[in-house]
Simulated assay, not measured.
Amino acid sequence: MTNHFWIVGTDTDVGKTLVTAYFMRYFQTKGVKAIPYKPIQTGIMVENTKHFYGDTEFYKSFSEEVLVEEHLNSYSFKKPASPHYAAMLEGAVIDEAVILQHITKLMTMYDHVICEGAGGLYVPLNEQGNYHFLKLIKQSQLPVVLVTRTKLGTINHTFLSLEALKIWEIPIVGIVFNGDEGTELEKNNIRTIQQNTDLPTLVIPKLDVLSDLKNIQLPNTDFLERLSSI
């Protein structure tokens, strides 16, 4: 069985790329072919004379095997901004057909295609603001894993995101709480969300060093096994 899904977030910088990389490594260690795919990435980075994009570079850094560069991304824009604005600055237009065709092609080549969103669910992909990531996800006909924070504000952001996904009739595989530091507030936030949904959840602790991702051991493997049987 081939299993493909989106990693989406309640907001920007909630850890979608980290979770995508973790799931990629998990599947790779199971001996199956997995590819992360970031349709749109923004914000070019410069280190000395090297120019690169953080998301796809992160994938390559944590992969158990060499990843095919052209499989990882369709659109890259220099400005660290919403996709529609970053594209506009370069006189470009994001064509959803290109992204959907790329996903379809990858699904014929890999056991798991892990598509990563950009920002939150309603991030616009065109200047008019009437085409956003939710519409793209709906058109792809793939389920989603929702990544959220554990800090103050996460309850509201998480429930609003879940409501939007349900309105659009997009299947939700589960929720990943990222960056947990184990405070009483965070425990209550997580418990409140768990008690008010019927979704499986996974908690990823805060990583002081990103290289710890390679060695992280998560207790709840049921969530990960569920991804293998979508």
Rank of each mutant, 00 (worst) to 15 (best):
Y53M: 00
K187L: 12
L146D: 05
K138H: 13
L185S: 11
K206V: 03
S61T: 11
H51D: 06
D198P: 05
E225G: 06
G91Y: 06
Q28R: 09
G153N: 10
K206I: 03
V8E: 02
Y37H: 12
D55S: 02
I94E: 06
V19N: 01
Y75G: 00
N196C: 05
T29F: 10
L185G: 11
L72G: 06
S74K: 09
G182T: 07
L146P: 06
Q28D: 08
V66E: 14
S140M: 01
P36C: 13
Q128T: 11
W6K: 03
V8G: 02
M88Q: 15
P171L: 08
L165D: 10
H132P: 12
V8K: 02
V176W: 01
M88I: 07
K166Y: 10
H71W: 02
L106Q: 03
I94C: 08
P171K: 09
L199F: 00
T150V: 12
K105E: 11
T12M: 02
D180M: 15
P36F: 11
I193W: 01
S161Q: 06
G15M: 04
H51K: 15
Y22W: 12
L199H: 02
L165S: 10
Y22N: 05
F27D: 03
R191L: 15
F159A: 03
V203E: 04
P124S: 04
V203N: 05
P124A: 04
H4N: 13
D198H: 13
K33Y: 13
T42N: 07
T154A: 04
E57C: 00
D95V: 05
I35R: 09
G129L: 02
K79M: 11
N73Q: 10
A21M: 00
T201D: 12
L224E: 05
Q101C: 12
I94V: 11
I103N: 09
K79L: 13
V113K: 07
K135H: 14
L227V: 13
N126T: 03
H84L: 09
P219Y: 10
H157R: 07
V145T: 03
V66K: 15
D212W: 12
L202Q: 06
L134H: 02
K214D: 07
L227F: 09
W6T: 08
M24C: 15
G43R: 09
I230L: 15
T221W: 07
T150P: 05
A81S: 02
V145H: 00
L136H: 02
V203S: 02
V32M: 07
M1K: 14
K16N: 00
F62G: 00
Q195R: 12
G31M: 04
A97I: 14
E127L: 14
K166A: 15
G9V: 03
H4K: 07
H71M: 00
I175Q: 02
I114K: 08
L162T: 01
V46R: 13
T148H: 01
M109I: 13
F58C: 01
N189P: 01
E47H: 15
V173C: 13
M107L: 06
L185V: 15
D198Y: 09
P205V: 08
F23Y: 10
G91T: 05
T12W: 05
F23L: 15
A81L: 06
T12E: 00
V123W: 03
